[in-house]
Design a protein around this nucleic acid. Structure first.
Lengths: 92, 92
DNA sequence: TAGATATTTAGAAAATCATCTAAATACCAG
DNA sequence: CTGGTATTTAGATGATTTTCTAAATATCTA
């Protein structure tokens, strides 16, 4: 069900940058927001979309909310692309 | 430059279905349109977006215009996803 | 409990996108 | 050249998306 949601989530450059940031380690919402020229509520909105697409997970630690990558959906998306590249010419 | 364009192109389910259809072989614009509950100009619009993203190529053959996959951009997209799955835990 | 910090939710405005109909372009056959 | 088929372009409309500000919620510390 979240296959389409994931593709839509990844279509936005801000969200792709968030995912790239999280590749180096978990970050709080505030730390993520500090990388963008954008108000915090806007970044929060992007995080919500990534979460709904199951591309990230969040956990609260006191006042902070930490975000981390969830790579299981990436596996599915990777497979989708792999089929185009791999099965080239095989017509099946 | 067309990296972002490609992600946006792929975000739409109609366009992903077009790409899947083309995996089995080249098709004319009309053949592609026949798979959708949508007017031909709408499908033509989707084809234009896929073409601008370099995900498909077109060639005219008489009255028909044939569309075919261009897998080189898929390679780039595949790599992007691969980095998330592969380098998991390596933090670099 | 009161004040400070971190984050999200709500609601509005502007931009972008998907779709439609009507018209234009390109090519073929007679 | 004329009529027919294939496809795209133009322009409009409604839906979705991104961003903003203001307000709400959650947690910490004194």
């Amino acid at each position: 069900m979240s296959f389409n949601e994931a593709f839509k989530a990844i279509a936005d450059p801000t969200r792709r940058k968030i995912l790239s940031l999280l590749r180096k380690g978990d970050l709080t919402a505030g730390e993520i927001a500090s990388h963008f020229d954008m108000q915090k509520p806007s970044v929060s909105h992007h995080l919500k979309i990534l979460k709904q697409a199951d591309l990230v997970q969040d956990r609260r630690d006191g006042q902070h909310i930490y975000y981390s990558l969830n790579t299981t959906v990436f596996q599915d998306l990777l497979s989708w692309f792999y089929d185009f590249v791999e099965k080239e010419g095989k017509k099946q």
